[in-house]
């Protein structure tokens, strides 16, 4: 065990979620340590995206607890009414990259990346003291992140002027600009042409090398095996199998996982 394993950054305990009578998540529990990459796999309808949306507060779970960095951000037993400021602070512990990018069409790549940071900065002390410097600082950070994802020359382009892969890289940069503790990806390459998925996977790999904690819902099995430290296989709303990628992919215990993986080797 190396030192990092001692620091759980995400703890999910007994999470459950129903839409009406349909139980989408049942008693989901797992722990993720800081700096690790977790991939969540499973067929459509297995609840992986709902899990992601519950942890990132886009959906409200019905049962269970979510602890991020030692702080309980959600507890179905003890619901708290947070102020807008508290909600934002908790929300920003996580970042999310959507399947369909969801870039803001009327803003350039750089504006997309910096908009939320600029709005948040308005409440800070530094902003009240020196507005120009605060905005310039955010702009510089945005440009740096865009160049990190290989888009320094596209800063002033609007989303429609970019390819799908470039748009998704902007949306990764946009999430990174808010400095999340954990970055979530919801099938980040599913909306892309096959030849464009490589550039996204490269960016995620590069982030993994900087020890960014990430949770990736994906259908790219080869990539999941390659980049992840841990795998969770979900089936019908429960975690069917989880563990080291080598073991999960080479020696699956569950018959359903074997069946699932077979579909990808054809």
């Amino acid at each position: 065990m190396d030192g990092k394993e001692m620091h759980p950054i995400l703890q999910v305990e007994g999470l459950g979620k129903s839409f009406g009578k349909v139980e989408v998540l049942r008693d989901i529990s797992f722990t993720l340590n800081k700096g690790r990459v977790l991939s969540v796999i499973g067929s459509s309808g297995s609840g992986k995206t709902t899990l992601l949306r519950c942890i990132t507060s886009l959906e409200k779970a019905n049962k269970g607890k979510i602890i991020i960095g030692g702080e309980t951000v959600f507890d179905a037993e003890n619901p708290v009414k947070d102020s807008a400021r508290e909600r934002r602070r908790k929300q920003l512990k996580t970042g999310l990259v959507f399947q369909s990018f969801n870039l803001f069409p009327q803003y350039t790549a750089l504006q997309n990346v910096t908009l939320a940071a600029r709005l948040a900065a308005k409440e800070s002390e530094a902003y009240k003291k020196d507005r120009k410097a605060a905005i310039e600082e955010i702009r510089a950070r945005g440009l740096q992140i865009l160049s990190d994802v290989g888009l320094s020359d596209k800063a002033d382009f609007y989303p429609w002027q970019l390819s799908g892969g470039q748009q998704q890289r902007v949306s990764i940069a946009r999430a990174l600009c808010m400095k999340p503790e954990i970055l979530f990806f919801d099938e980040p390459t599913s909306a892309l042409d096959p030849e464009l998925t490589g550039e996204i996977l490269r960016v995620i790999k590069q982030l993994a090398s900087t020890h960014m904690t990430m949770v990736i819902v994906t259908h790219e099995m080869t990539f999941a095996k390659d980049v992840s430290d841990e795998i969770i296989f979900m089936n019908k709303g429960v975690i069917e199998e989880q563990g080291d990628p080598q073991i999960v992919f080479e020696n699956p215990k569950s018959a359903r996982l074997r069946e699932f993986l077979n579909k990808f080797t054809d």
Partner: peptide, 9 residues
């Protein structure tokens, strides 16, 4: 949703 996850009101 993008606005929400970016901490915008």
């Amino acid at each position: 949703e993008a606005g929400q996850v970016l901490g915008m009101t």
